[in-house]
Design a protein around this nucleic acid. Structure first.
Lengths: 166, 166
DNA sequence: CTGAACTTTCAAAAATAATTGAAACTTTTA
DNA sequence: TAAAAGTTTCAATTATTTTTGAAAGTTCAG
């Protein structure tokens, strides 16, 4: 495959994967573009490359920065801002995992805790409590596991697999 | 909290969590409803409980069955079909993880492999190859890890955490 | 200050995804 | 075999999410 074609395909695929996992397609595409760019890119560059509007670029860049996986860069003698992405894949994955846990999983855990504490005593209520507290326990443990995995610095995926094999 | 309120809140929350992770809200809500129902429910029951149309119920139930987390049940002397969900949370998580890996991660891995094999030799191409193959390696290993974790039968979350702590 | 260069905001428009509902289809009963 | 009971399909509609683009905002050089 030719480089240009490969780049396009990578950006498309990353974008599609993003949507399937609840992340705005353009956001994922900007991220893909920055990942494979040696140099930091200006907003103009990004708009042109992906054929998107200024507003769209601005908003999605902001989100990426909020997620902690894209950074603003300043170049000497240049007024405008440049953007570059976290280049370490491990660090990238760690940040994404942390953010999704914080924004989505932890709030859900709180609700599960809350609803599993229903006051009724009927058989129906007992069944409900049982299911929701099992779910609470499970998700809490899974989330803790995620924390454990991601807090290991350096080659955590490899380390984790190694431990799992023993 | 009262049982009815708790049920509603649980169904809402599960639905919202679904959308955030790329799963149709109604599909997640039907699943939530079945999870907390002792008895299998008919399509009518589900339509009424969630205020959704017959077509919507039918299509989303089908998806849930395709995912392997909801089953049709037949009751003696009843013409219509009843639906119930996988009740073991561990089994549920295992099935969801397996399906998402099969449908989304594995195809993405194939594309990454493909694009990281670009033929050009320029510096630009080398950088692109480097990033995409790192990503390929990483996601491949993460996916293998997921396979490893989910193939352990019985209390796999606990076992995994235990191993991680040693 | 003033205005040029650049970025952000947000209401409106466009694109995408989900939902409806009625017709077609399937299965069962009489 | 007819029709009743139930389910599925899918074109049209509705809801939701994303994107645009122009106005407002900001920063900086002269």
């Amino acid at each position: 495959m030719k480089l240009d074609e490969a780049k396009k395909k990578f950006i498309q695929t990353w974008g599609a994967l993003g949507s399937q996992w609840g992340i705005n397609k353009t956001m994922a595409q900007i991220h893909a573009l920055l990942l494979i760019s040696e140099e930091a890119l200006s907003m103009e560059d990004i708009m042109e490359e992906l054929h998107i509007s200024r507003g769209n670029a601005s908003m999605n860049l902001r989100s990426l920065i909020d997620w902690g996986i894209v950074f603003k860069e300043f170049k000497a003698g240049e007024r405008r801002e440049f953007f570059s992405s976290e280049k370490s894949i491990e660090e990238l994955a760690r940040k994404i995992a942390k953010e999704r846990s914080r924004r989505e999983i932890k709030p859900a855990i709180r609700v599960l805790k809350e609803v599993s504490d229903v006051e009724d005593q009927s058989g129906d209520a007992e069944q409900f409590k049982k299911t929701t507290s099992e779910l609470y326990d499970f998700i809490l443990r899974a989330d803790n596991m995620l924390d454990k995995i991601t807090e290991q610095k350096g080659n955590w995926i490899t380390k984790t697999i190694y431990k799992l094999m023993t």
